[in-house]
Write a protein that binds this DNA or RNA. Sequence first.
DNA 1: GTCTATAATTCGATAGAC
DNA 2: GTCTATCGAATTATAGAC
Lengths: 189, 189
Amino acid sequence: MPFTQRSEETRNAILAAARRRFADDGYERATIRAIAADAGIDPSMVMRYYGSKEGLFAAAVDVVLGLPDLRGLPAGRRGEVLVRHFLTLWEGDRASGVLTVLLRSAVTNEAAAERMRTIFATQVGAVIGPAADDGPTRAALIASQLLGVALCRYVLRLPEIAALDADALVASVAPTVQHYLGDPLDSAG
Amino acid sequence: MPFTQRSEETRNAILAAARRRFADDGYERATIRAIAADAGIDPSMVMRYYGSKEGLFAAAVDVVLGLPDLRGLPAGRRGEVLVRHFLTLWEGDRASGVLTVLLRSAVTNEAAAERMRTIFATQVGAVIGPAADDGPTRAALIASQLLGVALCRYVLRLPEIAALDADALVASVAPTVQHYLGDPLDSAG
DNA sequence: GTCTATAATTCGATAGAC
DNA sequence: GTCTATCGAATTATAGAC
């Protein structure tokens, strides 16, 4: 173990505070001073542990989506499962705020954008399995709808999207994802 | 006319430079100094004309979407028309960059987010016409897909979405919008 | 109407005591 | 391992000459 227990606690406190600040204020506005104050330690400790603001950011957004493998599921339910899992990830994100950090900063920070591209290319591309030539395109269309929902619901807080309960949102968006997976759709809404 | 011709030109040069900088760098990173340099004038002129950085930003994102009225169209083609118009707006945005500014800064700036909410609530809500109780929800779902596309294509530059030509993108996304408008879908892709 | 000069902050990062 | 003190740079915004 390269760190003492005390320093490990401090590192975690810094990371938690950093995610909140980066999520609430964005990369530029979030200051090391404010993060350190939230964590109850000195600003210089942040530099000591993470070297720079960029290093701290990279550590804060180091996350894996953990999407479910859809290949074992009935073809007709994959859209619903994928959307529900995605929404559950975001609903549970309030504690850490990692996803919000990532999306929010990917918009103004090229390094974060690259990380976002990689995550969705590998994660979403993988869960839909080896497909035809247009597999990557289908995965990207799914990403566009899911990211659009996350953007409207958790970042822009568009009232009509933010007010929907998770079940209703899943019911509304799942057919679209199912459609991008290759299926025609039958029900409106 | 409250402004001389010379000052009018300067104001326009400032606005054009501001939109580029805000779009490229985001609100926080875009500096008045850089904007003034791009416009070929002194930084103090920006303050003189727009009072503050926030005032300049408000002027830069003062835009109307100008979406088409769908009510006169055949019901089955509304999705396609709406998506194509939306994409055309964004493709033509390179000159001014207003839309990119708005989306990019709405993610980290609450004032811009409020403006974005208002624009989509009034514009998108209006073009789909007076509908049933779930009209606003449908409009918001459409917004989530359209904004998701704009996010992936013009901001995150997700390769599979950014590489598609406009026609292919319209063909892929129009069925989803048509679906949110109330229609079932028949074709995959 | 345009510019120079600068005030007043604030930030990331460093040096070093304990 | 934690903190004090501070440097150097960059920013918004202001005051005033021309």
